[in-house]
């Protein structure tokens, strides 16, 4: 995360990948201990990654990152279960202490992606698709859409915020 803040895209990608694997494990166990199947886990993983991305100001560089991540995961898991009418306290502390885990689980495609993307305005949706599905860079997309790179970045950021809000609003 520190090097990501210095401008290292590759470090950020590695970090997010690693965190996603760890979250997948944490969230699955959380869901199972709440008596629910692991089917919804990828939604929560993505929601947590989004929160971690959008709320990284709340992490203080002087402090270890794992407790902060765990707290976000716990918040999102509890939120998710509450939305589905589950009120018990979820404790993920016992088994989420290590970020280094070797649990090989295949990442399923999460929430119905069309429904999620459809909630975005046209332009934001195109930008997200180009970048996330086709692996294009922001600089690439801006020449195609005839926008400035800054405008693409702003639109992308708005889109990510809208996705986070979409998760929050989503009701069973």
């Amino acid at each position: 995360m520190r090097s990501a803040r210095q401008g290292d895209d590759e470090a950020y990608r590695r970090l997010l990948g690693k965190v996603a694997v760890w979250l997948r494990m944490v969230v699955r166990r959380g869901l199972v201990s709440a008596g629910r199947g692991p089917a919804e886990s990828e939604d929560i993983v993505q929601e947590t990654l989004l929160a971690m991305h959008l709320k990284q100001d709340s992490w203080n560089e002087q402090q270890p990152i794992v407790p902060w991540l765990r707290a976000i995961a716990r918040h999102k898991l509890a939120d998710h279960l509450r939305r589905r009418g589950f009120h018990d306290h979820v404790d993920i502390d016992d088994w989420s202490n290590a970020l280094e885990v070797s649990v090989e689980v295949e990442a399923p495609a999460a929430i119905d992606s069309r429904r999620l993307l459809e909630s975005l305005p046209e332009r934001q949706r195109v930008i997200v698709q180009r970048i996330s599905h086709e692996g294009r860079s922001a600089a690439d997309v801006c020449s195609e859409l005839g926008m400035s790179e800054g405008a693409v970045r702003v639109a992308l950021h708005r889109a990510l915020k809208a996705l986070a809000a979409f998760y929050r609003r989503e009701r069973p």
Binding site: D9, G17, S132, H133
Partner: peptide, 22 residues
């Protein structure tokens, strides 16, 4: 959306260093 795809979008949106909250 797959998680890897989301990760790509997040990497593209990597914010510049911002002013600390405090």
């Amino acid at each position: 959306m797959k998680t890897e795809q989301l990760v790509e979008a997040l990497v593209a949106d990597r914010p510049a260093a911002r002013r600390p909250l405090a």
